[in-house]
């Protein structure tokens, strides 16, 4: 089944408290080479059938309107499977 991957990140200018907590844990483990951590989301959308232009248009709409909230997040990538 073809799978489309949508990646969403919190906006760069906003505080990411989850990432900050992980960065704090890394620092406590002595992994001081990592100065910052940000946590985003990866969605894998499985499609029944071929990835048509209609499917692509739907994915872009869904990514913008449901999978992300443009006030707080950015869609950073939509990756389609290699054509067979």
């Amino acid at each position: 089944m073809p799978t489309i991957v949508v990646e969403v990140m919190p906006k760069a200018e906003l505080l990411d408290p989850q990432g900050k907590a992980v960065a704090g844990a890394l620092a406590r483990l002595g992994k001081t080479e990592f100065s910052n951590v940000r946590i985003g989301k990866r969605f894998e959308l499985t499609v029944d059938g071929p990835i048509t232009d209609i499917v692509r248009a739907d994915v872009e709409k869904i990514a913008d309107e449901i999978l992300s909230n443009s006030v707080i997040e950015d869609v950073v990538a939509i990756t389609y499977p290699e054509a067979e």
């Binding site: 919190p10 408290p17 989850q18 900050k20 907590a21």
Partner: peptide, 15 residues
């Protein structure tokens, strides 16, 4: 989220 009000709510800054 329904766009009836502007802005958004994110995780508390202190976590």
């Amino acid at each position: 989220e329904a766009h009836l009000l502007p802005g958004g709510l994110i995780r508390n800054d202190h976590g």
